[in-house]
């Protein structure tokens, strides 16, 4: 049984009823790192928040199920979900400065998680806070525990967020673009920290990013999202080495590196007309006639790999 299973999740704008996430399914095994890659507007962040029933304002869930260790989160009473949040499943977000409370010290905020989710005494909690801060690579934890968020640099703030997320000893950590706001030299430090923690503790990770370079560094499995639909899934190496979906191929061709210039990417249209068929049809270079009118299903190519494209029927 997978640790987490998202089944046919549909999210819609509650005022217009427009579907933003259209039947997304994926699962995470214990100890797995699942990377969700997608550009802005792909629905990756609202999907992540909805796992814990934290729908952003103006978004409602129209159908779908989320199972954590076989229990359906959406059918639990709210009090049960509360116990899950920050305890068995925790989150870190992109911008630590707006996610942290500016009027509490770092130590107080980490301790708060322990207060809610553990039975430790006050003294034990204080000790545990320092251990946690040390674990996430914060040097001089006594001093940093007394600091306020604005006194720390971006990298330290994100480490403090990770300490808070680890305080409940979660089994699953959802990280939504946790390094996007950081400079490259700090980004790699935070990624390495998350990778080490996940390996050492067998912690499962859902890692969301728009950056394929980051995903290829940290993830084992990948889900490619585009306009609220899963276009391709599989093991990271396989997908990056041999992308099946034209969109995945476009993403790889457009990402640049030390010796990798942007290819003059073939792409149809800058102005997109909405399509009734395949979501990627307007930009696709391989446009098949069937995709214009009909939506392709997610086709299973082999045990670990699926792609939503008529070319693989």
């Amino acid at each position: 049984m997978p640790l987490l299973e998202v089944e046919n999740l549909c999210l819609a704008d509650s005022s217009t009823g427009k579907l933003l996430v259209k039947g997304v399914s994926f699962s995470v095994e214990k100890g797995d790192v699942l990377g969700i890659v997608g550009e802005s507007g792909s629905g990756k962040s609202i999907t992540a928040l909805s796992i814990l029933k934290l729908y952003p304002p103006g978004i409602k869930c129209t159908s779908g199920k989320v199972y954590f260790k076989g229990m359906s989160i959406y059918d639990m009473p709210e009090s049960e979900v509360l116990k899950l949040r920050g305890k068995q499943i925790s989150m870190i977000l992109q911008d630590p400065l707006s996610a942290l409370n500016p009027v509490l010290t770092i130590g107080e905020q980490v301790e708060e998680v322990l207060e809610v989710h553990s039975s430790l005494s006050k003294k034990q909690r204080k000790k545990r806070v320092l251990e946690l801060l040390k674990e996430v690579g914060i040097s001089d934890p006594e001093l940093r525990a007394r600091s306020y968020p604005h006194e720390l640099s971006g990298g330290l703030r994100q480490r403090a967020m990770i300490a808070m997320a680890l305080a409940g000893e979660p089994e699953l950590l959802i990280a939504d673009e946790p390094t996007t706001a950081l400079d490259p030299t700090l980004q790699i430090q935070v990624l390495e920290l998350l990778k080490n923690i996940s390996q050492k503790k067998g912690l499962s990770l859902i890692f969301i990013s728009h950056d394929l370079g980051v995903i290829s560094y940290i993830a084992k499995h990948i889900v490619v999202l585009y306009k609220g639909e899963v276009l391709e899934t599989g093991k990271v190496e396989a997908v990056l080495k041999e992308p099946l979906h034209p969109y995945t191929k476009l993403l790889i061709d457009s990402s640049i590196g030390l010796n990798k210039r942007p290819k003059s990417c073939q792409e149809n249209l800058i102005f997109e007309e909405p399509s009734e068929g395949c979501v990627f049809y307007p930009r696709c270079v391989k446009r098949c006639e069937k995709g214009r009118k009909e939506k392709p299903p997610l086709i299973k190519v082999d045990e670990t790999r699926s792609v939503r494209c008529f070319l693989y029927e």
């Binding site: 030299t185 790699i188 370079g213």
Partner: peptide, 10 residues
């Protein structure tokens, strides 16, 4: 800076 650069398949 060079060592910190992340890219696909490197």
């Amino acid at each position: 800076l060079i060592d910190s650069t992340l890219e696909v398949a490197r």
